[in-house]
Design a protein around this nucleic acid. Sequence first.
DNA 1: CTGAAAGCGCTAACAC
DNA 2: GTGTTAGCGCTTTCAG
Lengths: 352, 352
Amino acid sequence: MQANTKRSTIKEVASAAGVSTQTVSRVVNGRPDVSDETRVRVQQIIKDLGYRPSAIARSLIQQRSFTLGVVTAGLKYIGPSRTLNGIASAAEAAGYSLLLKELAHFHANDVIPQLNALYAMHVDGIIWAVPEIGDNRAWVNDLSIDLPIPILYLAMEPREGVSVVSINNYQGGRIAVEHLVEQGYRHIGHISGPLDWWEARQRMAAWKDVLTEAGIVVQDHHQVEGNWSSSSAVPAFEKLYNQYPEMDAVFVSNDQMALGVTQFACQKALRIPQDIAIVGFDDIAEAAYFTPPLTTMHQDQHELGTVAVQEVIKIIEANQSGIEIEESQTIVLTPTLVIRESSLRQKEVDRK
Amino acid sequence: MQANTKRSTIKEVASAAGVSTQTVSRVVNGRPDVSDETRVRVQQIIKDLGYRPSAIARSLIQQRSFTLGVVTAGLKYIGPSRTLNGIASAAEAAGYSLLLKELAHFHANDVIPQLNALYAMHVDGIIWAVPEIGDNRAWVNDLSIDLPIPILYLAMEPREGVSVVSINNYQGGRIAVEHLVEQGYRHIGHISGPLDWWEARQRMAAWKDVLTEAGIVVQDHHQVEGNWSSSSAVPAFEKLYNQYPEMDAVFVSNDQMALGVTQFACQKALRIPQDIAIVGFDDIAEAAYFTPPLTTMHQDQHELGTVAVQEVIKIIEANQSGIEIEESQTIVLTPTLVIRESSLRQKEVDRK
DNA sequence: CTGAAAGCGCTAACAC
DNA sequence: GTGTTAGCGCTTTCAG
């Protein structure tokens, strides 16, 4: 039992045990070249003194911290949190600690201080998990902030010379809209996310392409922009419905907005999916319990995080052992369609 | 522009500038006792070499890291994420970094390694943000893991000799149920969270107490246990409804479960709130867009996090300047009622 | 205003 | 098996 006052050092353990600090170090690190007798004695003293080795002193000398830096934003939303969850569990499994920085805003482009702060803490690698918005990626190719450690980018448009792990939003959008087309819908509107978001543009582009390929003419007034929130979707859908009254289905760029659409439709006595079919994106936990349950694109943000961790660590280990590996890898995960009631062409029997 | 290869040191800067490392240190730390000429020259060289001071070397010598350890669990749920969000923004504002550990399970009680890992990284304080479940707090009073740094506990039953920042779940439960009683409901059921959770027990106790005080007899079959998820609420509510058919209102221990209840009610053609009123707990972003919009207890988990950070830092700074402060403070935040349609006694006019 | 020496807590490399 | 020496990158202390 140690006193709750100060950190005990390897030196104190050494002198209490009557050995050198070196021997204590060997015991702590489980090296084989210590006699059993010594080992046991030292271990006992370590316990008695409540000695806990200093990881940062070790980092300093080994030039290796077994720590990963993570820069994120918008943790109050479930998407970024699920990704962080994946990062945290993979890091834990790999024996790495996590140093977390959250940007105050998604748009923040004063990123240099964040990067420097992480580097100052000797992180072995960095995962940049802030979504790509507007020009907040302009700095990526700025060599002046080049760090001697790997940086892995999440949820970003793949780029030359940069490691990226991403979800294929374009493909996801295609699958969603193709599903609606297959169900027989021909007047398919779109509520997009904010169009300065790369992900929103990808999903919208897919919507356009699939319809065009199906021989359906896409016009500007078939689409309205939301801001990802349920509240934004209510006026957005109202506007869309007014300017596109033939609309019989809508691809909504995330589930929160789909919820807003659902509420509005309910108020206007529009039946889902008989009068208007809905497909969302994300597959949040609540989607299965909307009224009616929401068809949506499931994206595995948890896995996005775990893959990211595995990739940085792969690069770190490779650098460590001097192996040259291809610098910039790009990994893309594809979302999957989860079909629920909100998008199903009803059979005659279903119409009461 | 430095080469993307290795960390440059204070020594390199010093010799390149023709000064001592001491002088470089003074420049880096903005000390006044350097001539302007020297300062400018050194700053230029720092830039040229891409020198970034090592925070861990500094931590080692100053015995102070300006880093907080955070232990959390369940980041895939929105509650813990919102708290982490609050922690992160407050830490950023105070100039502290965050070292994050996520427990694989809520129940994990092998906490010593987590604590030790954080301490090994020289964190200045720890925020324990894992909910209190079963006996996963048994270790709190175990002196053998006493650390020489402050630990602040979140969302835990207040205890002697321990600093706690918590949300008053009992009070929140009372407010929720009192609202239903005021609306005129007399047959109020309860779907609780898992009863090994302290928070679930608190809310349930409040439900019992308020009804009893109102002269309403509470019986065992008026309550059913869920597991916080929407899916658990469907069979839970079905069972509750069968065994308590007079029930005209239900206090559900979180919003996800309230959503499950909503869906089931809708399928059974039970109208909300005419046939069954619902009050939830949490005020998740989606709650305002349920059909009908959900009355719920808003708990400010973001603030829970910011307050926690401010408290640990207060203790840290006090210890630092040798001031003795009362060791164990308890701060309790109270949730607020957000009234929406799901709980309103309808006027005649509202009934079509 | 600037520098030299010592050392934070630990481990690599080498001796014995 | 175990100890000694040196030093990771920085700051504190004390001289000048």
